[in-house]
Simulated scan of single mutants.
Amino acid sequence: MQPQYYIGIMSGTSLDGVDLALMDFGQSPPKTVACDFVPMPEKIRQKITALVQSGKTSLQEFGELDHLLGKLYADSVNQFLLKVRLKPDEIIAIGCHGQTVWHSPNLAYPFTMQIGDMNLVATQTGITTVADFRRKDMAVGGQGAPLVPAFHQAMLSDPNTFRVILNIGGISNISVLNPSAETIGYDVGAGNTLLDCWIEKHLGKRYDKNGEWASSGEINQPLLADLLDEPFFQQAPPKSTGRELFNLAWLEKKLQKHTALLPQDVQRTLLEFTVQGVVNELLKLDLQGLPCELLVCGGGAKNPLIMQRLQASLPQWRVAKTNVVGFDVDYMEAAAFAWLAYQRIHNLPSNLPAVTGAKSAVSLGVIFPK
């Protein structure tokens, strides 16, 4: 069959870089053809971090950051095309999430903000680009997140298995694929964002490779209890969160009552906090007596201690990486945005009202012609 190529782009809350996935929707089922990663330039990472942590900037700085991100996405695609030996006119569309700098769905004037000038992406790649996926869902009453469960439902549903897809990026979120009920999905807590913030503060590293630093510490149960005593965890889904809640300032406020802890013990406790945020949600589910699988993707899937703790805490579940079903743990979300672009180009619904709380299913995204 004739290939139908789409490229998905994702840069998430971890700020480590840009993930790209080339999907072929001319095959049945659609396949991931190739993937790539471009590290986030330190200058851009620092600017985004400062903006997200403070919520403050100047219009000049904001506009420049929007431009820098747009150029980063465009350059990333152009490098990717050279690697996979494809020309721009062989790609039907790019689906680009943009960089979330603020997400506030629950106030009087709900909004979400992803930046990166998609006009630059479309013109500098010569490929039609689809972006701004979240705001249409919010316009019809939804949270604007999470969007990936619709992709999981389309690609990974199994009529004989109660399957949950867990993405542990900066924030952790789940998609619940219950064969006898509609799909639900929502954020369940801090993923890697606090782990990354803490190790960067103390060791100057971007992340705790293989959970090695956390493994050298011990869980502090009083601190863990305080971390879990956050109103977000009591909210019923649909719900979503981000670095505007789970950040270093939030952690340091919690630590004011726990002054004599070793930094590595805090790291180990933060890892357990990430795990228990997931486990507490899964224990609420009615599994219908079916075999149950937890398929993990995102950076957290590469942390052996997180995976060990998930399996130990969920003995009746089969815990595995999404690689076992054909989706690399690093590129699941990028593949999802290729699918979202495909849905928008064909004017097909791409949100799930049961997931986001939207009043209706709509086709998400704004098209930026090449």
Rank of each mutant, 00 (worst) to 15 (best):
Y5V: 06
I9S: 04
I9N: 05
M23Y: 01
T32Q: 12
C35Q: 13
P39S: 11
E42F: 00
R45S: 11
Q46E: 14
K47G: 05
Q60I: 11
H67G: 04
L69M: 10
K71I: 12
Y73R: 04
Y73W: 10
V77P: 14
L86R: 13
G95Q: 04
H97T: 03
T100E: 12
N106P: 00
P110W: 10
L147F: 02
A150E: 06
M155E: 10
L156M: 15
N160K: 14
I171R: 07
S175P: 05
V176P: 01
I184N: 13
Y186K: 02
A190N: 09
D208N: 08
K209Y: 15
G211P: 06
S216M: 14
I219F: 02
E230N: 14
E230T: 13
K239Y: 05
F246N: 06
E252D: 14
H258L: 02
L261W: 09
Q264I: 10
L270S: 06
F273T: 06
V275N: 08
G277I: 03
V278W: 10
V296E: 01
L310H: 01
L314K: 01
P315M: 03
V319Y: 03
D328W: 06
A335Q: 02
L340R: 03
A354S: 14
S360C: 11
S360H: 15
A361P: 10
